[in-house]
Write a protein that binds this DNA or RNA. Sequence first.
DNA 1: AGGCTTTTTTATGATACTATTAAGAAAACC
DNA 2: GGTTTTCTTAATAGTATCATAAAAAAGCCT
Lengths: 236, 236
Amino acid sequence: MSYTIFLYNKNTDSLFELSNNLMANDFNIFQISSIKEANEKALLHPPHLFILDIFSDADQTDVVEQCIEIRKKEIFNNTILIIHSPNTEDYLQIECFKAGADDYIKKPIRTKLLVSRINALLKRLKNTTQEEHLIHFSNQMVINIEHYSILKNNEFIFLPRKEFEILLLLTTKPGKVFSRDEIVQTIWKKEYKQIGRTIDVHIRKIREKLGDEVIKTVKGVGYKLEEDLLNKSVLA
Amino acid sequence: MSYTIFLYNKNTDSLFELSNNLMANDFNIFQISSIKEANEKALLHPPHLFILDIFSDADQTDVVEQCIEIRKKEIFNNTILIIHSPNTEDYLQIECFKAGADDYIKKPIRTKLLVSRINALLKRLKNTTQEEHLIHFSNQMVINIEHYSILKNNEFIFLPRKEFEILLLLTTKPGKVFSRDEIVQTIWKKEYKQIGRTIDVHIRKIREKLGDEVIKTVKGVGYKLEEDLLNKSVLA
DNA sequence: AGGCTTTTTTATGATACTATTAAGAAAACC
DNA sequence: GGTTTTCTTAATAGTATCATAAAAAAGCCT
């Protein structure tokens, strides 16, 4: 499993080298240039680690504020927060720690040592990650099983129970065609009963909300989830 | 609850000042002068944190060995290991991290900052149920777990036990839909076969006091706390 | 193309689930 | 032991969700 890291700097250009170095160490890196952007990306990929990279002295004053801002958000509850800054004043470090930082790393630092520190911190991460309840799609869509909700284009979509269950069933084996009988037996439990066009109507409702491209009809057989829509790389 | 810290140095005299400073910060300190001694003391007081204090350059070569030695022992499995040393060669730090260290702190460091770092590390300690008795909401609402009460718009609202427990359960995973069965099993413990509309009535009572927006119904599934309402408190 | 089959879509009535109220039991309180 | 508060049960009302039917569209075959 690969860890997800948010790399924050107002000026993303400055992150190029660090980003590349970390990616070379098998981390899944997202470059972020605002807290707002972080919040949005986190809905899709709650990060294990968040590096607040401070470039210029002008940034410094905001650091503590940014820590507090991040720690307020439920989604970052279990995220390790690292400050990476050229400024190492004691008082500033203490304030950052108080605001919820996990480490304060002085700039510059050699990548190898940084990776060592990151791994030492990740080792302590509680293994309850929110990712477990999320199913990612390539088209900016995420199913949240716990919440019974779907996030698409940063908007929450609510599916009623039957619709949600059908969609979930299809996602268990993306690309596999599920016959109506299979769907009935799984979702409705009861024996192989002649069910009219109920499933079709549910599929219709799902398509209405998520778009027609998500579920494909295989005539005479059943329905399937559009296979290359599922983002397996993230799931691994 | 006070954390137990092992403070290691071959020459215990050199630890006098550091030891006193940490004790003043409400840590439970044991001074240790050999790994053997650490193993013995740990049987009685498994430490939350182990500080390997390196005094002279002569000690340096042993550090990595000592880390490995400590990490071998079952009793220190869940102990956070800090190296406190004047030597900051990158290769040495990397070796220490590889050997299981959690942090490498350069000497000298001001006590205040050291305590900050220690607390940041302890925060991540597994099995540590942080006794946070305040849960903040964005809508000017604060739950006080100790008081079994809620502050909303600067007014205290009292919830009876069952109502409070249900609300508390929902706040443990904001956004997650809890089924009635889940709620019953958590709050009522026992099997409790026959549950009529008991939970509904409790939910009703909660909504009556806190407003309808706090708990959302997911028909056919259960109830959930409105997710973006939670505002995690930072200051412990 | 035409005729047949299967699916989509719309509309509507049924039903399963939840809300609400009230009232009696059970606890808790003093 | 009596009073107040909280919890549960029950009964009714209300509503979102679901299933059914039926028409429209799409797909398939010779």
